[in-house]
Nucleic acid binder design. Structure first.
Lengths: 358, 358
DNA sequence: CTGAAAGCGCTTACAG
DNA sequence: CTGAAAGCGCTTACAG
């Protein structure tokens, strides 16, 4: 806890050597011959200060390179203008893109972003949330449904506005800005059924604490049932990686050769499946149709290009920022508002009619 | 600036209604029958407090849900434990990946991340840097060389440790953690020359305020000159987008049909070029070789897979975090240390011997 | 329109 | 080992 001595200094004999790194209101006040109160007002309520005094203060401040101390302001105002985000990872383009838009929107309103990354399991959200809040976050963006009642309680107790993204969850206690995972997957599956597919399989990322994957799996089961397709649906749960998509496809090929279409719950899994299909000499979509989820940039570039579901990543980021900014504004303390955003089924070359029965 | 009245309250009659959102040291002190000084010590210098008192304090704190106020600590300690990062965008996997590793490493040491995104032009770095620092960042990660002497001066004056990533710039005033762009590009170009290519073109992203692209362009010119290849090198400068890579390839095909190999300064540009080559009926690498830069995940998945340069994204993030953490530690105020990291030429299917002269 | 003073929530040198 | 008090840098109710 030792320092070079010039920064922290309690008592009266502070800063004897080098000039302090950052000038404060007192320095500006001295230089412009007014009180610190006036300096503060010149910045925060300029209309209330006489023109010449204001100019003098501003000039002095700029000469000195003065900028208000954020910690002091935060302490005094009980307002940090910091918003936190908890995302599974930045190594997934859709999250990165959402966050990019989120932070840009925050910056536009003079807010800072605190970022935490956790894995994909939303049951481990309390700790990072607490960290963020204790360090000053006044509101929180989270990806996916909050399952932990402890977290909900913690946030409610401190009146921290939260917005859940990715999944739009109607009627949930916590407002969500996202899309309907169930409907989006059903649309895709409906399209495959209409093409004539009867033997479908799903490759999903872990559903543990991941409501988005859960919803897609449920949609799959229900859509098949609704279509009168009997038998245990083929569903393989893997971790979220290209290689896992590949090995899952290999397993389906070996153990469920009747399958003609594979619904992957992320483009990453689909890419892996696609590569493995080629390796095995399967024609896509001739022998097997493959679909993805999210419409990452590379989805349009594979061979064949991937049929997938485009997801409003940027818009979720912007809307979440605005909802949180709003909920955090002084006076307006009634919680952020959710919003359901549309997805889009993007049909490309990786899907087609099922092969003739062999 | 109105509030619900229960949060900010100056004077003696504060919090008459609801209990305050967050308990403070005084609350804990009262509940455990000690002074606030002791409460503080129980947390920050536990060894100095008698066992039973410490336990009592900790119990009271936990009952109350006490957590220290970060702003107050920051003000008192003159230490925020916040580190800032300025990256061009999160929409580029390599930056996202670096940042992901950076923030994870910071979190492990109890530090928070402030993030700012600017475009690719490093001449616009002063404003975001100032924002970050004024809001409490104690150190800064920047991508690419800092060209603005105003920024260098600003940072030096406030003794803000900075680390520049991506480019390793030996002998620079500001330490850098990255790789040698020149050497990496030369290695790639050397490989193409050895394959027999004589007519090369380069597609680069904007070199404006982007030393990485600049270095690669320079390497290209010099490598060609060194190889005794005369004539004005074909260099197309585009913005950083798939479609731009595509249009650049089309232009090369039309105006420089003699070209047999195209060096793209990013995988994104290369992807576009690859797609356009196919569209034009050019065989890759039969008619034309195409290379990328960075080895993003999708680079191995295109058809043919992309020959490219793998870049140590995660490691740059981790090392930058450690360097900054170190430079920021109390006592140790001698500036972060740079490091040169290796790249790796990844040869895949998009490159081959040049076509026979037609 | 301006200033003196209190207080936001902490930590720590100083005394005991 | 513990407490009283000062002070980090701000803003604002209160007085003038």
């Amino acid at each position: 806890m030792k320092d070079d001595g010039s920064r922290v200094a309690t008592g009266s004999q502070r800063r004897r050597s080098a000039p302090r790194a950052r000038p404060n209101v007192a320095d500006v006040a001295r230089r412009s011959g007014v009180s610190v109160a006036t300096v503060s007002r010149a910045f925060n309520a300029p209309g209330i200060v006489s023109d010449d005094v204001r100019e003098r203060v501003l000039k002095a401040a700029s000469d000195l390179g003065y900028a208000p101390n954020a910690a002091a302001k935060a302490l005094r105002l009980q307002r940090t203008h910091i918003i936190g985000a908890i995302v599974p990872t930045l190594n997934y383009a859709i999250f990165a893109s959402m966050l990019n838009a989120f932070q840009a929107r925050l910056a536009k309103s003079g807010h800072m972003l605190f970022l935490a990354t956790t894995g994909f399991d939303n049951r481990a959200l309390l700790e990072p949330a607490r960290q963020l809040v204790e360090r000053g976050a006044e509101a929180l963006l989270v990806v996916g449904r909050i399952d932990d009642p402890g977290l909900t309680a913690y946030l409610a107790e401190r009146r921290i506005p939260v917005v859940t993204t990715y999944s739009y969850l109607a009627g949930n206690q916590i407002p969500s800005i996202g899309f309907d995972n169930d409907a989006a997957s059903r649309e895709l599956i409906g399209y495959l059924l209409r093409l004539g597919h009867r033997r479908l399989a799903m490759i999903t990322a872990s559903t543990q604490g991941n409501d988005r994957q859960e919803a897609r799996v449920r949609a799959f089961r229900e859509a098949l049932a609704d279509a009168g397709i009997r038998g245990k649906p083929v569903i393989l749960e893997r971790t979220h990686a290209i290689a896992e998509g590949a090995s899952a496809l290999a397993e389906i090929h070996e153990r469920h050769p009747e399958v003609t279409a594979i619904v992957c719950n992320s483009d990453v899994l689909a890419i892996g499946a696609l590569a493995e299909a080629k390796r095995l000499g399967l024609a896509v979509p001739g022998d097997i149709s493959i679909t993805g989820h999210d419409d990452q940039e590379f989805a349009g570039l594979t061979e064949p290009a991937l049929t997938t579901i485009a997801v409003p990543a940027e818009e979720m980021g912007v809307r979440a920022a605005e909802a949180l900014l709003d909920a955090t504004r002084d006076g307006h303390r009634q919680g952020p508002k959710g919003a359901e955003l549309p997805t889009r089924l993007v049909i490309r070359g990786s899907t087609g009619k099922p092969r003739k029965k062999s």
